[in-house]
């Protein structure tokens, strides 16, 4: 790693920190726009309670002071109490939900990667054959289908019509449908990505050299072609996580998975602003960090990549 790479990584980390700060600041000021402040909820709260809450959170202080306190609280992972789930802190709700959602997301991401890379390689190696065409048609269809439509259709087919899988995502077997729903789009995307980069690599001179030397076909594929064609797939890691996070919002709503996504969606409809803010900040930080790791990994794995 030379100094240029280090400079790039440093710059990239700075940008990530700045981004997280912007997210936090936006969430803070956005809550000030809501008429009545963040403590306004559907159920009428008595003026005494509102005043007590305002005093507790220093709402009577100048905005700048409030902002500083808010930043400090967030650094201590304190997002305040939830307005709808009485007696629970937002951070507790998030921790509980994140455990479930992380399981869902990791399984979905892993299966999407495996399926995508295998199918993409098959399509590239059998280019323009019937199997390649079938794979491309199916992936094109999946890429154009919103996750909530896909989820609803799977739910109708497997849980309602055939009744072979549970519609409720609380049990282990109930996680199958949500995982499939979440994984279909990334799997289709990775398939297309792997196919095109594999085709690119197969046209390179070093593959021809290997072939001319008499290297066996499977060793060319596994030793030379596959490794090099996975580099573009690596860049998709960050966007894939972002997709899975936003996708899990609707998927958890459809299948009633008790994850962070369902909490987030419910908090929107229940106007539980502290929960909305807390979840936004946590998920946004997750995505930003993942994008950061992806960018750095990309640079480390392939030093040929020119950074501007």
């Amino acid at each position: 790693m030379n100094s240029k790479t280090l400079m790039y990584i440093l710059k990239r980390i700075l940008l990530a920190i700045l981004t997280v700060w912007v997210v936090i600041t936006v969430t803070f000021f956005v809550t000030r726009i809501i008429p009545g402040g963040p403590f306004l909820s559907e159920k009428a709260v008595s003026p005494a309670v509102t005043a007590a809450l305002e005093a507790k959170y220093g709402m009577d202080k100048p905005v700048f002071d409030q902002y500083i306190t808010y930043l400090k609280d967030i650094l201590h992972l304190d997002f305040g109490p939830s307005l709808t789930q009485r007696g629970r802190d937002v951070s507790d709700v998030i921790t509980d939900g994140l455990a479930v959602s992380a399981k869902l997301g990791v399984i979905a991401a892993a299966s999407a990667a495996v399926v995508g890379i295998v199918l993409g390689s098959i399509a590239a190696l059998r280019r323009n054959k019937i199997i390649d065409k079938i794979i491309m048609v199916i992936t094109t269809a999946f890429v154009s289908m919103p996750s909530f439509i896909m989820g609803s259709l799977l739910l109708t087919l497997f849980a309602v019509k055939l009744a072979i899988l549970p519609a409720n995502g609380t049990t282990t077997s109930g996680l199958i449908l949500p995982v499939v729903t979440l994984a279909l789009y990334p799997a289709a995307y990775i398939t297309r990505l792997t196919r095109s980069s594999m085709l690119d690599v197969l046209g390179q001179d070093y593959i021809r050299t290997a072939r001319a030397k008499g290297v066996a076909g499977y060793r060319i594929i596994f030793g030379h072609a596959l490794k090099n064609s996975l580099i573009p797939v690596l860049t998709y890691l960050g966007p894939m996580l972002a997709y899975i996070v936003t996708g899990s919002l609707v998927v958890e709503k459809i299948f009633a998975v008790p994850g962070i996504g369902r909490d987030f969606v419910n908090s929107i409809t229940n106007r539980d602003y502290p929960l909305v803010m807390g979840t936004t900040i946590v998920l946004a930080t997750l995505i930003v960090v993942m994008n950061l790791i992806t960018d750095i990994l990309y640079k480390v794995v392939d030093p040929r990549i020119n950074l501007e």
Partner: peptide, 20 residues
Amino acid sequence: IIYSLPDMLMIILLATVLKE
């Protein structure tokens, strides 16, 4: 900075609040 913001989350947050 705007490019690296997680767009969907920001959209949901802004849409929720702007609605009110």
